[in-house]
Design a protein around this nucleic acid. Structure first.
Lengths: 217, 217, 217, 217
DNA sequence: AATGAATGAGGATTCATTCAT
DNA sequence: GATGAATGAATCCTCATTCAT
């Protein structure tokens, strides 16, 4: 009754259902670019515009703001998973891939530790999933004895150099902490700037990183 | 139909010029609390409301969004400066103060390395100033030979363990990088959570930190 | 970046022309249920979804919003017609059927006296038709001398008890007025509530109503 | 960050706080007119436009859709209360005022028995309040022995002509039921049409109504 | 004939900012 | 100097409707 009187006139052509998959991909790509420039709070309308689709298409594919952000992040996480699954890949090699993603999209890891206040993707379920997938992939190729994998006991946090019982050792939080630290250091206008900062951060942590590059597939 | 005289209404009384300073302080305090809960994008109207003043007062004291955020940050930086200026203070002690501020307001250092993408306070002049003041204070009490202060040469970045000429050595970027890394790791809902994460981060960097506390004045 | 072939996808299969009639019925049934819960302004997409068909099918069968609403109403009116056509049925009996329909779908009679302001189905032609069919059915079994059927003259409205000429007597508006009044009283969350209210309304009018039930066919 | 880049240019003049009361009144008046024409679902933007104010003003005065509708209704209810409070007013006289309001705004009583499905103002607290105020006012001048005030016992509903105990008599629901019935009958494009329908409805109920007019104050 | 994606106008709502008092 | 109402642009989001497949 109250709605949408006459949307006739002459519409710009309906590219048909075939365009669906392409549209989705275009939206994710557009979102990635927009996020890189304007941050995660960028207007969704801009994403739709850049993707060359109507607003409705965005909402069809991604019911809410978090969904599109998760989709962007998911691509990053998947590449890391693939890199980690690769035969004979070293931990340092995977970190190289991670570093590449960090340098490409400043938003990347930032998403992984949302915490409500400034965190986007708050309670969003998929953010949690992605975080876990990311950690699992990384931990999976962490060599025994690596300092980021040293099991932690409660005392370890208080007196890290004290001898501790090997029982009740929790999986190390250091791995994700280190990633968060590096991602926190990744700033700068260009990917090159960000890569340089990321490498400096790893160096400061004393962690060896392989060549910075996307996963070659 | 559209006119109701109701000429006066009785407004809450103009507390006079004396209140100006108090209003400013109230606004900064209110902003700090609001930022802690809602992040830097919180509506300005909420800040004015919490401070118990009209919207106009906020604009009188702070011409734009960045100005109020800078004012909040400035208080943090000043405390660090005071801590650093204190006689016989150790570098670790100052880091303890820094860590306390990080734990209190997640927004703190985050502000210092705004870069456009996710950075608030973009080109804002005062953010630059504050960043420099912060760095100067910290560097001022960095002991000779501390690993965060090792001067850097261009080559150093490529081959950090190669011997290098002491000439043309740039001031180390490692100091601010480390702070950024730690601040990147500071997440969590409560100050206690954030403090724990911050300390774990410093530990991972191998940097000793003194007691986490505000500057005692 | 914007093109993903994914050429076919496998659509749910075109069930063929045979399904057309079934689809129409499903849509009407779905619309009835949706209207009952969400009112007449419910999104059309929900109707199609509940009917298990695509949006296009809805538009094929019902060119506009009013068409589907009319179709729902038409079923109600037809049942009343059938009840009224039944041999040896009493007026009270027909009112029982009418009351049953009122209690089932609050939307029912409300549709009959749309008037633009709050009326859905504004100038829609079929609403007019349905209204007339409904009135004709009801009037057809109104016994002579029933108070809802007393012919009206212009004066009758001003001085209803004055003696009046039998010439120029208009058919009574009281019949439809009474129905409108009862339907206006029909509110409440459950059919039982609505039935109780409807019966109380008829009682207040002093009109006898038969058993409240659908037409037995 | 993401919002309101440059709303400068040249704004249409801020009429100042003095306009507040006038704006509120203008909004209520505009809403009344809009509701009369387009129903309660009319776009709020149209109300603001007709009142000659910005969208924000509407939201300042009325935080949600129901608030403005309630404000409109409240004026009606208040007039009825005033009429009922008048010395020496008869019940029929008050019904005349009620009828006038019904004829003026078709939306009037309709608001009082919202029920979720088609009811606007659903659980809105003030709607409940207004309904009670309206009933109280009306009941207050209902003469003893009036048929709309006959106390009801549970049996009365089942066997209305059976003799019943005077104890445990519930206040009659008939009063509000009758009002709802009349309001249900009130349709038509012009106030005159609606008044005629309303009077016919009261006549059909056998209830005497005084002159149809607003409360003279 | 069915499907369901695409389109985009329209309505709701929020704030940054101005400015009369 | 303070107050807080007014303004309206911008963003979000929802659907009615079309149309390629």
């Amino acid at each position: 009754m109250t709605q949408h009187p006459t949307p006739d006139e002459r519409r710009p052509a309906n590219r048909g259902p075939k365009a669906a998959a392409g549209n989705r991909a275009a939206l994710v790509a557009a979102a990635r670019e927009i996020y890189a420039v304007h941050g995660l709070d960028a207007p969704l309308s801009g994403i739709a515009r850049r993707a060359g689709v109507g607003q409705g298409v965005l909402y069809r594919h991604f019911p809410d703001r978090d969904a599109i952000a998760s989709a962007v992040l998911e691509e990053n996480v998947r590449q890391v998973e693939e890199a980690a699954a690769d035969e004979g890949v070293s931990f340092a090699g995977v970190l190289g891939v991670v570093t590449w993603h960090l340098a490409q999209s400043a938003a990347f890891i930032g998403l992984l530790h949302a915490d409500g206040a400034n965190g986007r993707l708050r309670a969003h379920a998929s953010a949690q999933d992605l975080s876990e997938r990311f950690e699992r992939a990384l931990r999976g190729c962490l060599p025994d004895g690596h300092r980021l994998g040293a099991p932690q006991t409660p005392e370890a946090r208080e007196a890290p150099d004290a001898p501790h019982t090997s029982a009740a050792a929790a999986p190390s939080e250091d791995l994700m902490l280190a990633v968060a630290m590096v991602s926190g250091a990744v700033t700068g206008p260009t990917p090159e700037d960000r890569e340089r900062r990321a490498l400096a951060a790893w160096r400061l942590l004393g962690i060896t990183v392989g060549p910075v590059a996307p996963f070659k597939g």
